[in-house]
Amino acid sequence: MSSPITGTAAGVPFTALPPAGNGAAPLIVTWHMLDAPRSNAAFAAALPMHDLPVWRVHLGMPMCGARMVDGSTAAIMELARQDVLMSYLCPFVRQAAEEFPAALASIRAQLPVDDGPIGVLGGSLGGAVALRILADTEIPVFAGAVVNAAVRMRSVVGLFPGRYPYDAESEKAVGSLDFVAKAGAIAGRAPLLVVSGELDHPGLRGDALDLVDALGERSELLSIPGLAHPLAEEPGIEPAPQLPLAREVDAGLTRWFRRHLADARQVLS
């Protein structure tokens, strides 16, 4: 297999895994977790999808990997301490989604990817980014997938200590990141694979099941016995050997995208 290619796309760091032969091929873009694996390089190692005949470009989330402040996650934790929703969760998802169109154009200028619909994949908070691309943009997508995703941001806020003091502004913000409520828009855009660890946080697990129910025939649930929330061991910043449960997720993602890539090619032909 070819070595990863590292670079930046409109200021966003990426790790690109080329298809066999390094030639022109479709594109799948991913956004990593803020749990392990918490960088684009580590996410590429955890879920490489090597058997797909596509470019897999793993984007870095804000303030992660090459964009960490002083080489640590301390600045991220300080934002979470200030206001977990309005200083941390919402701005991360918003920035990652807003910087994507320019990053996508830069990827297409740098790598031999085709100009057809893309695949999107996100894990945990990166899953909210992938879902926002589906729900709130018109970027053509042939298929999407999320893994232990932040489907309802209110549930993610509930994972943090203390009772969050919602007001009108924060209620509006958290509502804008409820993707069960946006299931109709998502279903109209692309089929979605929802990967959920059976040992994930109960709230996130319940939201994943609710999203599948809301999407109906446009979705599929892949439930992974024994999988908790992370996909890699701590610290999760550098690439690490793929864990057995991550290998199961990787195999399911590969099957999903291969199937829908074939469907997309039939439509385009």
Rank of each mutant, 00 (worst) to 15 (best):
S3I: 06
P4K: 12
G7A: 08
T8N: 08
G11D: 05
T15Q: 04
T15M: 03
P18K: 12
P19S: 15
P19L: 14
N22Q: 14
N22H: 14
G23L: 13
A24P: 12
L27A: 06
V29D: 01
W31R: 05
A36L: 04
R38W: 03
A41C: 05
A41W: 01
A42G: 02
A45Q: 04
A46E: 05
L47A: 03
D51Q: 12
P53K: 12
V57H: 06
M61L: 09
G65R: 11
A66R: 15
A66G: 11
M68V: 10
M77L: 15
E78R: 15
A80I: 10
Q82K: 15
D83A: 10
V84E: 01
L85G: 05
L89C: 06
C90V: 14
V93C: 07
V93H: 07
A96L: 03
A96Y: 02
A97N: 06
A97F: 00
E99D: 14
A102H: 06
A102R: 11
A103F: 00
A103S: 11
L104I: 09
A105E: 12
A105C: 02
I107W: 03
A109P: 01
Q110R: 14
Q110V: 04
P112A: 09
V113M: 07
V113Q: 11
D115V: 10
G116K: 13
G116Y: 07
G116F: 05
I118V: 14
L121S: 07
S124M: 01
S124V: 00
S124H: 04
G127F: 02
L134S: 08
A135S: 13
D136R: 15
D136K: 15
E138S: 14
I139W: 03
V141P: 00
G144E: 02
V147P: 01
N148K: 08
V151G: 04
S155T: 15
V156W: 02
V156S: 08
L159A: 12
F160P: 06
G162T: 11
R163H: 11
Y164K: 12
Y166S: 03
S170I: 10
F179P: 01
A181G: 14
K182D: 09
A183K: 10
G184V: 09
I186G: 10
A190P: 04
P191D: 13
R205K: 15
A208T: 10
L215S: 08
S219M: 05
S219L: 05
S223I: 01
P225G: 14
H229W: 02
A232S: 13
E233P: 00
E234G: 08
P235Y: 04
I237N: 11
I237T: 14
P239Q: 13
P241S: 08
P244A: 10
A246F: 02
R247L: 08
V249R: 03
A251G: 10
G252W: 01
L253P: 04
F257Y: 12
R258S: 15
A262I: 13
D263Q: 14
A264M: 10
R265Q: 14
Q266P: 00
V267S: 06
L268K: 12
